[in-house]
């Protein structure tokens, strides 16, 4: 049960992020909601890769003296998470840049008032 805790936490984070995006009108808060979803997914990926007592994936082969039944950790989930974090940073930065531009044009961050494109 306790081992599954990270999965629950990550899904709660995703849910909170979605809830934020559906209930807040401020553009910055929308971006924060998106980052929350992203953190949840990243946490999910990292916790997938955790192996209790495993050998850290900084070696190519398990070092001398480590019993063979101790597993090597696959570095793939960590690599995935790093990539996802980098991508997430890029998208968040672009998103916030658009928020700045929109604020300069409209003088508001209320998503309910930024509705020139509709219908």
């Amino acid at each position: 049960m306790i081992g599954n805790m990270p999965f629950f936490v990550s899904m709660i984070l995703v849910g909170l992020g979605l809830w934020t995006m559906m209930t807040r009108r401020n553009l910055i808060k929308l971006a924060i909601g998106l980052v929350l979803v992203e953190s949840g997914v990243n946490l999910f990926l990292v916790s997938l890769g955790y192996v209790r007592g495993g050998v850290a994936p900084i070696y190519t082969f398990a070092p001398e003296g480590v019993p063979t039944e101790i597993p090597m950790v696959m570095p793939t989930p960590q690599a995935l998470t790093l990539t996802a974090i980098v991508i997430g940073m890029a998208t968040t930065a672009l998103l916030l840049a658009f928020v700045v531009v929109i604020y300069r044009h409209r003088g508001t961050l209320d998503a309910g008032k930024i509705r020139e494109l509709r219908g």
Partner: peptide, 19 residues
């Protein structure tokens, strides 16, 4: 004023879909 608005909305959707 219109293109950044369109880009923001699209970006929110694309990022969420990507996640």
């Amino acid at each position: 004023s219109r293109p950044p608005e369109a880009a923001f909305k699209t970006m929110v959707m694309y990022t969420l879909g990507g996640l």
